[in-house]
């Protein structure tokens, strides 16, 4: 009788220890980035582009990478919205519940979700060769859009599945077509969830390095042309860390801090947006 109480206590202890290890890892990562990044932080980092000899320790900042990352991921997110929204709407408004096609589509999205980003990079590069593109902003947008499209679609699909069937039926009963119902009822009802899916996808896209390493290239200037190479934050961190100079490596830590802050702002922003846009939702 007592032995099973002891077993319970032992396992409970082990579980608490495991949870502490996992949680302290996340704190440790954030603390490391903060402690190493803060001392190297200065205003130049986020307001200037690299000057000549930046990677040897001369002055400048990584504005090129910040702007490049936002342009690239923003473009990819836009492309991805136009791909994901129809998929999710088709699965939840048009298709029958037992549709084989939709079952296949969902499996495909799961598979695509798991495909490593380096494979999207290689595939994106293959497409670029096919289209005759060089490493450019557009190439990066294609690769990152492919990478985040399954994440976004799955997210939208999950929230649209939660929309009550009665709501759709009342819309049909009023004489609305499926398309009108999809846009004016389903999208509005699921809007908070759709926005959060978009932001999660954006957050994933802005932090990914492997898919842009040969599709977007790198550039020390800010450029707004689709056909010129663009710098990205993860690659800026990687390159700065790869130099043998301690001053430059410290800037990599500051860049890592900037990227972490951006990712967190997006994550917090998505929570706030969800709350604000919940007012159209019928409960």
């Amino acid at each position: 009788m007592r032995s099973r109480k002891i077993e319970e206590a032992i396992f409970r202890g082990i579980m608490i220890a495991a949870t502490l290890v996992v949680l302290s890892c996340s704190i440790l990562i954030l603390a490391t980035i903060l402690i190493k990044g803060l001392p190297a932080m200065n205003l130049d980092m986020i307001t200037k582009t690299p000057k000549g000899g930046y990677y040897l320790g001369k002055s400048g900042g990584i504005l090129n990478a910040i702007v490049g990352s936002i342009l690239l991921t923003g473009g990819a997110t836009l492309v991805s919205i136009f791909l994901s929204l129809p998929v999710a709407l088709y699965a939840n408004v048009y298709a029958d519940k037992s549709s084989k096609l939709i079952a296949f589509t969902r499996v495909s999205l799961d598979v695509l979700w798991g495909v490593p980003s380096i494979v999207y990079g290689a595939f994106g590069f293959t497409i670029m060769l096919f289209l005759g593109l060089k490493a450019s902003l557009l190439g990066g947008i294609i690769a990152v859009a492919l990478l985040i499209f399954p994440i976004m679609s799955r997210g939208m699909d999950e929230v649209m599945r939660m929309v009550p069937k009665e709501l759709l039926n009342s819309s049909y009963a009023l004489g609305a077509t499926r398309f009108e119902t999809a846009l004016k009822v389903v999208v509005r009802q699921a809007l908070p969830g759709i926005l959060s899916a978009v932001l999660i996808a954006f957050g994933r896209g802005i932090g990914d390095a492997a898919s842009v390493i040969f599709t977007a290239g790198f550039s020390d200037r800010i450029n707004f042309s689709l056909f010129e190479p663009a710098a990205t934050l993860p690659l800026a961190i990687f390159f700065q860390l790869g130099t043998p100079f301690p001053e430059v490596q410290e800037r990599a830590y500051a860049s890592a801090l900037i990227l972490t802050i951006i990712v967190f702002l997006i994550s917090i922003g998505s929570r706030i947006l969800i709350r604000r846009y919940s007012k159209h939702v019928i409960k």
């Binding site: 990562i29 802005i206 990914d208 961190i237 890592a256 990227l259 994550s267």
Partner: peptide, 8 residues
């Protein structure tokens, strides 16, 4: 933890 980029 899931949202932190791999380069970090």
């Amino acid at each position: 933890l899931a949202g932190i980029p791999s380069v970090i």
